[in-house]
């Protein structure tokens, strides 16, 4: 201790400190430079690989979706067999299947769903749900919901109770896609406030997936959580659920607070206008 104090007092430490710091800055800069270069090279490589895989995937999808080739024949085909074992190829393949599914309806969509199951891409999505990282979970949820895997509904409902907002929104959206209004009924018991952004996403999910069955939306109006009540009102207003008018009128009379009362009255007004114009 005395030695250190002596060193400090004599300022003899200054030069070694400066030299050491300079070396440290130069060293770390060099490492960062190498990391930047490595990242750039990796990106270039991945881009090339992706281009290569995209060509194969186009062929593969064409055979499966449009030429009715069964997956068993594709699996045994030497041209595809090697790639199907490659994790990066499977990742690109999953993305392609999901994107295609977004753009197709009817028989083509069903064929894509079958391919997703038979190729066991579905297993990777289920595995993602168990991952500790929330972003991986989100990815898995998005994939399963897009491919209409209703078996995942209960797991996703459990995940939707998470405190992580992004994960919660992704899971609730998936629940709505897979189960319609049953996907949000559990929100009536939700203990925390739901912010406007989450509410907006839930409403958007209803619009996006064209949920016609409105059975149960009125339960949201009975929640003790005022943000859930507000969500129910917004949902009824934006989607013009005129059949829920009586429930909203009832709420307007017995609202838990003035803000909700005002919101309910405004929804009653909007729905009445809708009914008259019909």
């Amino acid at each position: 201790m005395a030695k250190i104090w002596e060193l400090y007092k004599n300022s003899h430490w200054v030069e070694p400190f400066l030299i050491g710091s300079i070396c440290l800055f130069v060293g770390i800069s060099a490492v960062l430079y190498l990391l930047i270069t490595a990242s750039r090279n990796k990106k270039i490589k991945q881009e090339k690989l992706r281009e290569e895989y995209d060509l194969i995937i186009v062929e593969l999808m064409y055979a499966v979706v449009f030429m009715d080739a069964p997956f068993s024949s594709v699996k045994d085909d030497q041209n595809y067999a090697v790639f199907l074992k490659n994790p990066y190829f499977r990742e690109v393949l999953t993305e392609s299947v999901i994107n295609l599914h977004k753009n197709y309806d009817g028989i083509y969509a069903i064929k894509l769903e079958e391919f997703y199951k038979e190729s066991e891409l579905i297993n990777s999505s289920f595995k993602k749900l168990k991952n500790r990282k929330w972003e991986v979970k989100c990815k898995g949820i998005t994939e399963l919901a897009e491919m209409n895997i209703t078996d995942s509904f209960d797991t996703i409902v459990t995940i939707s109770k998470s405190k992580n907002k992004t994960l919660k929104i992704t899971a609730i959206n998936a629940c709505i896609k897979l189960g319609g209004t049953t996907g949000i009924i559990h929100l009536t018991e939700h203990p925390y406030p739901i912010d406007n952004w989450t509410q907006l996403n839930i409403i958007n999910a209803f619009k996006k997936h064209d949920i016609g069955d409105t059975q149960g939306v009125e339960y949201l109006l009975e929640s003790k959580n005022t943000t859930v009540v507000s969500l129910g009102l917004k949902l009824i207003k934006e989607l013009k659920f005129t059949q829920k008018l009586s429930h909203v009128e009832e709420l307007a009379e017995k609202a838990p607070n003035i803000l909700i009362q005002y919101e309910a009255q405004s929804v009653v007004q909007a729905l009445t206008v809708n009914l008259i114009s019909k």
Partner: peptide
């Protein structure tokens, strides 16, 4: 960035509550 990759800005674009 992680969070943003899951954000659907369309929700804001199409909503009257934006």
């Amino acid at each position: 960035l992680k969070k943003n990759s899951f954000v659907d800005y369309e929700a804001l674009l199409t909503s009257e509550f934006a």
